[in-house]
Design a protein around this nucleic acid. Structure first.
Length: 494
RNA sequence: GGCGGCGUACCCAAGUGGCAAGGGAGAGGUCUGCAAAACCUUUAUCCAGCGGUUCGAAUCCGCUCGCCGCCUCCA
C-alpha cells in the first residue's frame, strides 16, 4: 500500500512502526464558528483513510484535536459578550452535529488544547532548557518563542529555506523576537484575555505547541501519519516538526498526508474570502450521502470545485447505484420479469467479483484513490446488470448475486457511501427534495392507480401518474406492483 | 520575487512509459397498455502548445501559454 508523503513529495510504500498500533494524528478545527464544506472534506478524507486501514487489518489509534483557545475564539467571545469556553463548547457541539450527519466516525481520542496545558508547559520548558527557545518580557509576564535558526532542518516539509522566508517581507516585524521567523510557543496574556499560570507568568499556549503536546501524549513521539489540510503545511506543520524534533530528538511523523482544497470559481474556499458554504447550508438541499459522495469523487489531494452541478452529479451517481441495487433485490425476490437478453454465466460473474475486488483494493492501496475505486464500483454494477438482463435461473442467480452484494458491502463500508438500502435512499430523497407528499399518500395513489389499471381505465391511471410526477415522484410499473422513486431533477422547494 | 501544483471528450474525472477507467449530458436500441424510469450500445486516431529522449509518451526532459496554491489566521 502506497501513500503520498508531503515530506518527500512522492508516493511511498506504507511501512508502519508497528502494524498492531498505528498512530494517526489529524489536525482538527478551531472551534469559533460553523464548519464549512472544506472542513468536511478534510474530515471525510481522514475518515475514509482510517476506515480503509482498519479494513486492511491495521489496528489504528486515531487522534483528532480541537483547538479551543485562540485569538478568534477570544474575539468571538468578546463580540458576543460570553466566556471564551462557551464559544468553544458551542462549536464543538455543532462540529459533531455536522460531522455525524456526514457519516464521519468519531476519532479514538478527541483532545482539547486546554486540557493539555501542563503537557505544553513541560515541552516549552524543555525547549528553553535545551536552548531552542527563549523568553521575552511582554507586559507583566513573559512570552516564549522558538528560535527557528537553532533547528537546522527548518523548512524541510514546506521546502522553504529560512533565507527565503526572511526575504519575503510579509512576516510581522515583532521587535521582541530575535528573528521574524521565530514563532510563539507561549503567549503572555493581555488584559482581559483568558490565561493559565505558568513558569513565565500568566499566559496561554501558542497554536503549534498544542498539536505536539496532544499527539505525543496520546500517541507518542513519532507518529505514523500526521494529516491535515494543505494550508497547514506552512507554518503549522513546519513549526510542529521544529519544536517536536527539537524536544524529542526523533522524527516527528513518518508520513505527512495533506488534503487539497475545495474551490469556488477555481479559488480556495475560505472564511477570509467569504466564498464559503457551511455544511448545514448544503445539507438543507442535499442528502449527506450526496455530499460525502461528492467529496470522494476526486482524488483527495486534488482541488475540488464546489458547485450545485457537481452535487447533482453525485446525486445522480448514488441514484444509479441504488436503482441497480433495487434491481438486484427485485430479481432475488421475483426472478426474471423480462425477455432474456444476452448471455453471461455465473462463472463470469464470479470472475467479475474477483476483478472488482482487486481493482477496488488496488485503487485504494494506491494513495487512497477513491475516485478510481468508485469507478470500479460502477464497472462492477454494469456487469451485474448484464447478468440480470440474461435472466439466469433463480437458484444460480441467488448464490452469485448474494456474493456480489456482500462484496459490494465490504467495500462500500470503507467509503461509507452506497451503504443504505434503496428504500432508505428514496426516503432520503423525498426528504432532501422537500417533496410535498408522504410515502403513505404515495402508496394510496399507487393503489388507486392500480385499481384503475385493473379495470383498464388508463385515462385515470395516467392522470394519477401525471399528478405524482408534478410533485416529483416517478412511477415504475413492475410485474408485481408499482415502484415509486423521486424524480432526479425534481424542482426544489421555494 | 521564492517554492509547489494543475491543464485529459460537451461537463466532472481516473490514468504518471506499451492499445485513453468511471459518472453526468447527447444519440441509437430493448422493455412497456401508453409512458416514464431502468438497462444495453455508442460518444477523445488522442490527452494546453512547441521541441526533445525512447522501439514506444497523456505519462520522462526543456521551453511557451493559461489557471491555482503556499510564503499571514486558514481544512
Amino acid at each position: 500500500m502506497r501513500i503520498y508523503n508531503t515530506m518527500t513529495g512522492t508516493k511511498e510504500t506504507f511501512v508502519p512502526i508497528n502494524r498492531d498500533s498505528i498512530g494517526i494524528y489529524a489536525c482538527g478545527v478551531t472551534v469559533y464558528d460553523y464548519c464549512h464544506i472544506g472542513h468536511a472534506r478534510s474530515a471525510v478524507v481522514f475518515d475514509v483513510i482510517i476506515r480503509y486501514l482498519r479494513y486492511k487489518g491495521y489496528k489504528v489509534k486515531y487522534v483528532r484535536n480541537f483547538t479551543d483557545i485562540d485569538d478568534k475564539i477570544i474575539r468571538k467571545a468578546n463580540e458576543e459578550g460570553i466566556p471564551w469556553n462557551e464559544v468553544s463548547e458551542k462549536y464543538i457541539k455543532e462540529f459533531y452535529a455536522d460531522m455525524d450527519s456526514l457519516g464521519i466516525a468519531r476519532a479514538d481520542v478527541e483532545p482539547k488544547a486546554t486540557d493539555h496545558i501542563q503537557e505544553m508547559i513541560h515541552i516549552v520548558q524543555t525547549l528553553i532548557d535545551n536552548g531552542y527557545a527563549y523568553t521575552v518580557v511582554e507586559g507583566d509576564s513573559k512570552s516564549v518563542y522558538f528560535e527557528v535558526a537553532k533547528f537546522k532542518d527548518y523548512g524541510k516539509l514546506s521546502k522553504k529555506s529560512l533565507d527565503d522566508l526572511l526575504a519575503g517581507a510579509r512576516i510581522d516585524i515583532n521587535e521582541s523576537k530575535r528573528s521574524p521567523a521565530d514563532f510563539a510557543l507561549w503567549k503572555a496574556s493581555k488584559a482581559g484575555e483568558p490565561w493559565w499560570e505558568s513558569p513565565w507568568g500568566k499566559g496561554r499556549p501558542g497554536w503549534h505547541i498544542e498539536c505536539t503536546a496532544m499527539s505525543m501524549k496520546h500517541i507518542g513521539e513519532t507518529l505514523d501519519i500526521h494529516g491535515g489540510g494543505a494550508d497547514l503545511v506552512f507554518p503549522h506543520h513546519e513549526n510542529e516538526i521544529a519544536q517536536s524534533e527539537a524536544y524529542s530528538g526523533k522524527d516527528f511523523a513518518r508520513y505527512w498526508v495533506h488534503n487539497g482544497f475545495i474551490t469556488i470559481d477555481k479559488e480556495k474556499m475560505s472564511k477570509s474570502l467569504g466564498n464559503f458554504f457551511t455544511i448545514r447550508e448544503i445539507l438543507r438541499k442535499y442528502d449527506p450521502e450526496v455530499v460525502r459522495c461528492f467529496l470522494l469523487s476526486s482524488h483527495y489531494r486534488s482541488p475540488l470545485e464546489f458547485s450545485q452541478e457537481q452535487l447533482k452529479e453525485s446525486e445522480a451517481s448514488l441514484d444509479r447505484f441504488y436503482t441497480t441495487y433495487e434491481r438486484i433485490e427485485d430479481y432475488l425476490r421475483y426472478g426474471a420479469r423480462q425477455k432474456k437478453k444476452g448471455d453471461i454465466s455465473a462463472f463470469e460473474i464470479d470472475k467479475a467479483i474477483e476483478r472488482f475486488s482487486k481493482s477496488f483494493e488496488d485503487a485504494m492501496d494506491d494513495d487512497f484513490n477513491t475516485a478510481l475505486a468508485i469507478g470500479s464500483i460502477f464497472e462492477f454494477l454494469r456487469i451485474l446488470n448484464r447478468y440480470i438482463d440474461a435472466s439466469p435461473p433463480i437458484s444460480e442467480a441467488t448464490a452469485v448475486l448474494e456474493k456480489g452484494k456482500q462484496c459490494l458491502k465490504k467495500y462500500t463500508s470503507t467509503l461509507n457511501i452506497f451503504n443504505r438500502t434503496p428504500y432508505q435512499w428514496q426516503l432520503a430523497m423525498l426528504k432532501s427534495k422537500d417533496i410535498p407528499i408522504t410515502e403513505t399518500q404515495i402508496q394510496e395513489k399507487i393503489a388507486e392507480r392500480h385499481n384503475a389499471r385493473e379495470s383498464k381505465n388508463y385515462l385515470l391511471a395516467d392522470n394519477i401518474r401525471n399528478e405524482l410526477e408534478q410533485l416529483g415522484i416517478l412511477l415504475e410499473d413492475k410485474k408485481d406492483g408499482t415502484l415509486w422513486k423521486v424524480k432526479r431533477d425534481a424542482p426544489e422547494a421555494n
